[in-house]
Design a protein around this nucleic acid. Structure first.
Lengths: 339, 339
DNA sequence: CCGGTTGCGTATAACGCTTAAATAACGAAA
DNA sequence: TTTCGTTATTTAAGCGTTATACGCAACCGG
C-alpha cells in the first residue's frame, strides 16, 4: 500500500459520494460541470463537497486524462535576461490569464541549446500540456517540439519560422515609427538612431520604423545617422559620441531601447550639450529607468502585461485545437522631458 | 476508457518490463535504485529504459506516493515587486537548485491576502510539496500554512515569527554598516541616511547598520541626519533636498537601496553640487541602474542568486524532515565613482 | 537431513479521478 | 398494462506508479 500524502489529508470523491448519497461518477460529473444530472442531486454534491472542503487532486486527474493542467514557461538562463524587469511583468500577464483557467505555470529557467537538452526532454515528457517561450535563440529546437505535437507559443517574432510557430509580439515597427515621427515633427532636422541588435527581429523592426517615419514624412534617410548598437548602455554611449563628433548638428536621437537611451543621454551630457534643448532623445520600452531618470525619458511604452496575457490566450486557444494567428500588440508614446 | 495523452506517447513500465524480460515491479525497483536486484537484470532494465526513451510519469508517481515533486514559488502580484529585477535572479537561484533534485517550480503570482484566498487553498490542496515565499506581508497566513504541515521557506526576515518560520535573508545590518563605515572612513564628516520602509525588517536592519557603523567608530549619531524613506526614487529625492537645506554641510549619504540612491544623486545635482566631490553617495543592492548610472554608484552587493539557492536548499532540507536554521548571506562593498 | 530463515522476484492491490459501457428509472406511446 | 425509447445513474475498467504480500529457491544451524 502506498503512503498517503505527507502534508494534508484530502477528501476524495468517495467521501463526497457517501455524504451526498450518489456514486463517485456522479460526483465527477457535477464537479466537472456536466449538466446531465438532476439539479437536486447536483446541489447535494456541491454542498457535500464544500462542507468537506474538497480540493481536486491534480495528479489523479492528470493520470486519468493525460492532461496535467500545467504550462511550462521557458526562460533563457542568462543574466541579461533574468535581470531584465520586463520578464517579471510578462510572467504576471501569463500567470493571471492561465490561473483563471486553473492552469499552473511551471517555470523552467534553463538554456535550451539543443534538441536533446534536459529541458527539451522535460517538455516532451508530458509533464506539461504546452510551453511558452520567453526568448528564442534556437528556433529549430522549438520547431521540433511543435512537430512532436507540443502546443507552443513564443513571445517575440521568430526570424525564420513565422508561419510554423505561434507567436505574440509588440508592434516594434510602428512603435519606432511613432518615436521617430515625434522627433521629426517636433522640430528636429537631423534625427539619428542607435539600433538594437539587428540580428534580432525587434532590432530590425525598430530600425524599419525609423525608416518608415522618414518615408511617410517625405524626408530622406541619411545612412550616416544610423549606428548599430547592441541594446547596451556602454555601447550606445560610445556610438553616440562618435555620431556627435561626425555630425555635430544632430538634434534628435531615437534609441531602440531605454537602456541605450540613457547611454545616449550620458554621451550628450558628456559633450556638454543639453537634453532636450540641443538634442532630443526618445527611447523604447518605458522601463523603470525611463521614469526615474532626470530628465524623464520620452519613450514608447509596450503593453508588457498584455504581451504575457496574449501569449497565454494563444496557448489556451491551441489547447482547444485552434491555430491562433500571431498577435501584434500596439504601443503608446509616453511624453516626458527628453523630447 | 480515458483518453490518452494528447501530445506525446510515452513508454511505460510495461514496455520496459517486456523488453527486459522482467516484471513491472522489478522495473520500478531498478529505476528507484533498490539494490536488491541482480545486477545483470538491473542492467537489462536500464538498457531497455534508455533504448525506449523512458520518462517517468510524474502524475502517476505523485498519485502513488503523495508527493508531487513540485514547489510553489509565491510572488506578490504588485507592480512594485514584479518590475524589480531582483526577483528574476532569485527565481533563477531557486530553480537551478531544485531542478537538480528533479523538483519543478510552480509560479504563483498572486496577492496572498487572507487564509482562505485561492492561493492558500492551492497550497494546502497538495498540488505542491512546499512553498517558497518571495515576499511576505501576511505572516499569519504563512504561519497557518506551516501549522497545516506545509513545508515553507520565506525569503526575507519575518517581523514577528522568526522562530516559527524558516527563512533566508541578506545580512542587511552588516551590509549597511559596511556602507556607512566606508563613507565615514573615507573622509566624510557628516553622513546622513535615507532609510527604507522601516515597517519592513530590511528597512530596520539597514538603519541599524548605519547606527552600528557610527558606534564602532566612536562617532555620535545625529538623529537629524536620518530621513525615513519608502524605497522610492521620488521620495528619496524630496527627502534629500530637505536634508541638504537643513544641513548644507552633509558630505555623505547612505541610501538604503539603489533606487533611492539615484534619487539622492538627482537631488544633489539639482542643488548644484557634485557627487562625490561635495557629497559622496552609497546605495544598497547593486542593481542594473547602479552600474549604468553616471557617476557609477558605489553600493552593497547582495548575493541574489545565492539567496534563491539558499531558500531552495532550506526547502530540500525541510522535505527531508529537518528544521534548518535561518541563513543570513554576506554582502560585499562594490566601489564605483560615487563614494 | 529437516524446519526455519533469508534472498529475490512476481503478482497484485492501492492512489483518486475519468469515462465508456451497462443498468435503472421514467415517461410516453401502443 | 405492456413495451419501447430516452435520460439519469451506477458499475467498472483503466491511467502508470509504488509498495506490500506472497511464493520459491537456496542456505543455515541444530
Amino acid at each position: 500500500m502506498p503512503v498517503t500524502s505527507p502534508t494534508t489529508f484530502r477528501t476524495t470523491y468517495a467521501e463526497i459520494a457517501a455524504k451526498a448519497g450518489v456514486s463517485r461518477a456522479t460526483v465527477s460529473r457535477v464537479l466537472n460541470g456536466d449538466d446531465r444530472v438532476h439539479s437536486d442531486r447536483a446541489q447535494a454534491v456541491i454542498e457535500a463537497a464544500n462542507k468537506l472542503g474538497y480540493r481536486t487532486n491534480r495528479a489523479a486527474r492528470a493520470l486519468s486524462t493525460g492532461r496535467t493542467g500545467q504550462i511550462a514557461v521557458v526562460i533563457d538562463d542568462s543574466p541579461a535576461v533574468l535581470t531584465d524587469p520586463f520578464w517579471g511583468v510578462v510572467l504576471a500577464g501569463i500567470s493571471r490569464v492561465l490561473i483563471v483557467h486553473d492552469i499552473h505555470s511551471v517555470l523552467m529557467i534553463s538554456p535550451l541549446e539543443s534538441e536533446d537538452s534536459p529541458i527539451a526532454h522535460y517538455l516532451e515528457g508530458g509533464d506539461v500540456d504546452g510551453a511558452i517561450f520567453l526568448t528564442v535563440h534556437q528556433e529549430h529546437v522549438v520547431q521540433s517540439l511543435v512537430k512532436k505535437g507540443l502546443p507552443v507559443v513564443v513571445i517575440g517574432t521568430p526570424i525564420d519560422l513565422k508561419s510554423e510557430i505561434v507567436y505574440v509580439d509588440t508592434d516594434n515597427r510602428l512603435g519606432a515609427e511613432l518615436a521617430t515621427k515625434h522627433l521629426l515633427s517636433s522640430g528636429c532636422k537631423k534625427v539619428a538612431t542607435i539600433t538594437g541588435d539587428i540580428s534580432a527581429v525587434a532590432g530590425i523592426d525598430r530600425l524599419e520604423g525609423y525608416h518608415a517615419a522618414h518615408l511617410s514624412l517625405g524626408i530622406e534617410v541619411n545612412e550616416d545617422l544610423i549606428a548599430h548598437g547592441d541594446w547596451s548602455f556602454e555601447n550606445a554611449k560610445t556610438l553616440t559620441l562618435r555620431l556627435l563628433a561626425r555630425n555635430p548638428d544632430i538634434d534628435g536621437i531615437f534609441a531602440a531601447n531605454d537602456t541605450m537611451a540613457l547611454g545616449v543621454m550620458a554621451a550628450i551630457h558628456e559633450r556638454g550639450r543639453m537634453v532636450p534643448d540641443h538634442v532630443a532623445v526618445v527611447g523604447f520600452d518605458d522601463n523603470l529607468m525611463a521614469q526615474t531618470h532626470r530628465p524623464g525619458l520620452t519613450t514608447i511604452r509596450q503593453d508588457i502585461v498584455g504581451l504575457g496575457a496574449a501569449a497565454a490566450e494563444s496557448m489556451l486557444s491551441i489547447l482547444q485545437g485552434e491555430t491562433p494567428a500571431p498577435k501584434i500588440l500596439p504601443t503608446e508614446l509616453i511624453l516626458r522631458e527628453s523630447a
